[in-house]
Design a protein around this nucleic acid. Structure first.
Lengths: 341, 341
DNA sequence: TTGTAAGCGTTATCAG
DNA sequence: CTGATAACGCTTACAA
């Protein structure tokens, strides 16, 4: 491997000069600069990242810790993060927590000296104080986590507000029997969406019924199963609100299997508004979440923190959601999109 | 930040001993070991990755270069890679080429000294010799790339075979007018799938018709548009084969818009078999590709290369695909899944 | 079994 | 503008 020394020797300058050419940290005469560039190019030199970060104590790398890497949600988050990071010249060290028996702790440790900051998504309520294992003062942005960790900058989606708006919309269409297919157990997003659902019922003057709240796990399969259960009730709901789109799509197929027409016999709605939502039959009414924007925003806040470590901004920021009305809820004249909070 | 020196001092040993404890590179007395561990724990020490890799010249990190991070395909690849890498104790440095004006070259350079090997996915035909910018001898696995780079280990999906099998299946159902919605321009997967389509027509004794080959770009929207165009032909096809599932789903919605029933009026089939495929209406017949396995296999080959740099295995490996018959193609009695090559 | 010390490839600090 | 040289935090001969 060709090092800075080789370049220096071949160009007839000192390593310091080569370094200066690459960092423009001090003036270098134009012709020396050109010579160094040419030699480096010819030798195929590029600076060694590890050596660089050892001395500068900056890796130009951001760590991204996700609970899993499955599905469009996470892929969109990474996409948003990648875009923002790349614009700022940062690399991405991505890791899922799946399979990590020690959870966050181990993952965090193994990243020391490899990243300048972290974006951690830990919607799992049990994980609790994600921060406990973080070196205090280390730049971190928490994504979609429970509000317990006040010590960290965090970003959440307006889950409750979105769910509430959806219930209000369904109630506005005349539905009195609105059921919820809930998300994964011990998941913060799932809990917030459930809270919004209940709140929405209350505001619409509708009773909360335990048999109208069926558990799911965010998968199509669980949505399918949950919807079947709801449709088999003695008094089945007239509207099914799933805590994410995958489950809503499962619910749609369950309705077909059960011989119920959507939206004529039963309305169906989802959450997230994944790209696929507009292409299922009937097109799915959903709560739009700009997932890649979530990732991008998290990255920007982290980069801000890296640039100005002094004035730390530890606020908890909420990203608005948008109600998107399509045919699956039976609204005959689709209302224009409107922002919720 | 607490370094190995701090630990050594606090434990009353030399840095060498601390290092040995962490690497079990040489025997250390049990009680010393315990003391060091305890002190390190208490001080919150963990070794500095950059420093480590500077001396060992191993980063325990794999670079993953993808054309984009959009959609289920890439997210599944990453998932497969992450699983295999994590099992082997490796980190993942992920980057998309989107927006990189200099393409691979720049991305590769900036990764020097940060990764031990690379997984590069460059289905773009124009990118051509992806390898040109790679330091020769650097461990690389190419994913879904054109066969031009014989100098690198590579992995491809049995695109042509899968497409051919799909056409054979449709022809077997009695279809004589089978159209193709092609994938993105200058994309290797897209070209291979088209090749398989044409070959399939030939083997079934069906004529190739230019008006039955419409261009798409792998998006739902393009599938929708392409299908509309096909259905408006004076002699519309009786079967539409889309080069991926997203476009097939777009085609399904186009059929609805056009008042054609699937599969009664027209059969629709896709490629990839994304999780969503079984939940659309009607469930989508597709060519199953185990995408995360593709990522996992690529990782394993890369890790093999890292472990034994001597005997390089530069073979081009093909991953089999599977025909999955569901209702959208009109096969009344779903045939069991069967492997293609 | 442990300690000493020489690097690994850079950048930063001082002199020139 | 340029060159020596001391770090950076760690591993690894070589000695003890």
């Amino acid at each position: 491997m060709v090092t800075i020394k080789d370049v220096a020797r071949a160009a007839g300058v000192s390593v310091a000069t080569v370094s200066r050419v690459y960092n423009s940290s001090a003036p270098v005469r134009q012709d020396t600069r050109d010579r160094v560039r040419a030699v480096a190019e010819q030798l195929g030199y590029s600076p060694h990242g590890a050596a660089r970060s050892l001395i500068t104590s900056r890796t130009h790398t951001l760590g991204v810790l996700l609970p899993d890497l499955y599905g469009e949600f996470f892929s969109e988050v990474i996409r948003g993060v990648d875009g923002a990071a790349q614009r700022a010249g940062y690399h991405l060290l991505v890791s899922s927590l799946r399979g990590e028996s020690h959870g966050l702790e181990a993952a965090l440790r193994s990243m020391r000296g490899r990243v300048d900051g972290l974006i951690v998504m830990s919607p799992d309520l049990d994980a609790g104080a994600a921060g406990r294992s973080l070196p205090s003062g280390f730049p971190v942005v928490l994504l979609n986590g429970p509000p317990s960790d006040a010590a960290y900058a965090s970003l959440v989606v307006a889950n409750a507000e979105g769910a509430q708006a959806m219930v209000a919309h369904l109630a506005g269409l005349g539905h009195r029997r609105i059921a919820l297919v809930g998300g994964a157990a011990r998941n913060y997003d799932a809990e917030e969406r459930r809270r919004g659902y209940r709140q929405g019922l209350g505001e619409a003057g509708l009773p909360w019924r335990p048999d109208y709240e069926v558990a799911g796990d965010f998968s199509e399969e669980s949505g399918h199963a949950a919807a079947l259960r709801l449709l088999s009730l003695p008094e089945p709901p007239t509207a099914i609100f799933a805590a994410n789109d995958c489950m809503a799509i499962g619910a749609l197929s369950a309705c077909r299997d059960h011989g119920r027409k959507v939206p004529d016999d039963v309305a169906v709605a989802g959450f997230d508004d994944i790209p696929m939502a507009r292409y299922v039959d009937p097109p799915l009414t959903s709560v739009h979440v700009d997932i890649s924007a979530l990732g991008a925003r998290a990255t920007e806040r982290l980069l801000d923190a890296l640039r100005a470590p002094a004035n730390r901004d530890l606020r908890r920021e909420t990203l608005p959601t948008t109600l998107v009305v399509r045919r699956s809820c039976g609204a005959l004249t689709p209302t224009p999109m409107r922002e919720i909070p």
